[in-house]
Design a protein around this nucleic acid. Structure first.
Length: 428
RNA sequence: GGAGGGGUGCUAGAGUGGACGAAUAGGCCGGUCUUGAAAACCGGAGUUCUUCACGGGACCGUGGGUUCGAAUCCCACCCCCUCCGCCA
């Protein structure tokens, strides 16, 4: 959410800054509502002031044992008038707030201009894609042959776009989660969090998933609760409506949770394998920082995510998202894309964003500076990494001609010696 | 699920219809004292909306209601605690 003062006084500037990002916003209507609100407030406040003075007069008269009937009759009428104005005012403010929650964040000036993902800018590249003297197979093909995935049976349990990992496939997920959590807690100064996987409407609104993207989330039928689409939601909202002290910052949390996404509107895309599923595991980094430190924090957070790929020796590139591809709440985002041999291209395994005060304003997360008043802090988060997609990258990049897959050195301590290579086993 | 208790500022906690935006204490900030610190003493400070400003309005879990007037009374909901029941 934007600063209400900006909405009130600099709406045109904001519209200009957002450019195509703001093309669906009813700017004129917001302008109109703002003006109406201003007028109504002036009226209501004036009447209320009169009412207050009158009430004090009644209190005084009672003390002095003077009659009050005439005054109270007049005030009753005044109260009625206030009520008739308050109702439209309440509706108006609700409407205005609803609109404000649907305006996306302003991109930082360093964000490249563009309309879609094709105009994202490569920032750097790490590692060399492996060369194979055979045609590399896709991870879903490999996994089925190795007996570690069973997508058919997964769809029997729930439906399409669910995965079922077996044996070393399941263990690989577990090893990766452990490896990532250890790396971030021991090397990067993160504190591990295990949050709820189900959150309420306020939390989803705080981080920006609601109200605009309700269709993307799984909603429980029995309660007004949602399955988390990312641990960003529960972890960022830990400090919802709180004021932290300046010396508490920065706060760095890491969480490993499943993530649930409806993937509405993605029919036909990435229908096979682990790339796009309704439930996947992810290790997520969340930062709460001083406003002046969020830029540096984004670089550090992105680097922490890159360290995972480097340790696993997976080739990747870092992309700066352009204005057209930037998420709703983000002011700046780097995507990490890992090399996928079967597709001869890089695919997203991580998205690292600085939200500046956008989420903090929605969620009411502030800090108290040493001097001055409470101010919204900055929030950031990034996947480090999406585990399913990392499994995909490992299978594909570490595959051998015979269809077996080596376990990366960095993960071997989580496996017994006989498990350092996954070899094909017939499907049961 | 049943019974009871409770949600007040940064924190603890008082306040049960009018001079209450809210006692008191702690913490915080500034000062006196001190070589420095601590202690003691003195002083200061909530959030937010509206207005160019003066000023004014709102905010005691949330939403309604009663009343001239609500932190205080009524209703509904949410959350926390204790006991009982059930349970991984």
């Amino acid at each position: 959410m934007h600063d209400p003062r900006v909405l009130k006084d600099q709406l045109a500037t904001l519209q200009e800054q957002l450019g195509t990002r703001g093309k669906d916003i009813p700017w004129d209507q917001i302008q109109k509502l703002t003006e109406q609100r201003r007028e109504l407030i002036a009226q209501v406040e004036d009447l209320r002031h009169q009412l207050k003075l009158g009430s004090e007069d009644v209190a005084k008269r009672k003390r002095e044992k003077l009659p009050t009937d005439e005054v109270t009759a007049r005030l009753r009428e005044l109260g009625d008038r206030i009520q008739t104005l308050e109702e439209p005012l309440r509706k108006l403010e609700e409407e205005l707030h609803g609109q404000a929650l649907r305006i996306p964040n302003t991109p930082q000036s360093s964000v490249p201009h563009g309309t879609d993902a094709s105009q994202n800018v490569e920032v750097r590249r790490w590692g060399t894609p492996p060369s194979f003297d055979f045609t590399p197979r896709s991870h879903d093909e490999l996994g089925e042959a190795l007996g570690i995935f069973d997508f058919e049976r997964a769809s029997k349990l729930t439906g399409s776009r669910f995965s079922l990992s077996i044996g070393l496939g399941a263990k690989l997920e577990r090893a990766l989660a452990n490896f990532m959590l250890e790396l971030h807690t021991q090397e990067h100064g993160y504190t591990e969090i295990l949050p709820p996987f189900i959150v309420n409407r306020a939390a989803m609104t705080g981080t920006g998933q609601l109200p605009k993207f309700e269709d993307d989330a799984f909603h429980l039928a029995s309660e007004d609760y949602f399955l988390i689409p990312t641990s960003e939601v529960p972890v960022t909202n830990i400090y919802q409506n709180e004021i932290l002290s300046e010396e508490d910052l920065p706060i760095r949390y890491v969480a490993h949770t499943p993530c649930f996404r409806r993937e509405a509107g993605s029919y036909g895309q990435d229908t096979k394998g682990l790339i796009r599923v309704h439930q996947f595991n992810k290790v997520e980094l969340v930062n709460f920082t001083h406003p002046e430190q969020s830029q540096d924090a984004l670089e550090a957070l992105t680097m922490a995510a890159e360290k995972v790929l480097q340790a696993l020796n997976l080739p990747y590139r870092v992309m700066a998202l352009c204005t057209g591809d930037l998420g709703f709440s983000a002011a700046k985002t780097y995507d990490l894309e890992v090399w996928v041999p079967s597709q001869q291209t890089y695919r997203e395994v991580s998205s690292c964003s600085n939200f500046e005060a956008f989420q903090a304003r929605r969620a009411g997360i502030r800090y108290r500076p040493k001097k001055g008043k409470a101010t919204h802090l900055h929030t950031l988060n990034g996947s480090a990494l999406a585990i399913g997609r990392t499994v995909m990258a490992i299978l594909e990049n570490y595959q051998q001609a015979d269809g077996s897959v080596n376990i990366p050195n960095a993960l071997r301590s989580y496996f017994s010696e006989t498990e350092h290579m996954i070899t094909p086993s017939p499907k049961k």
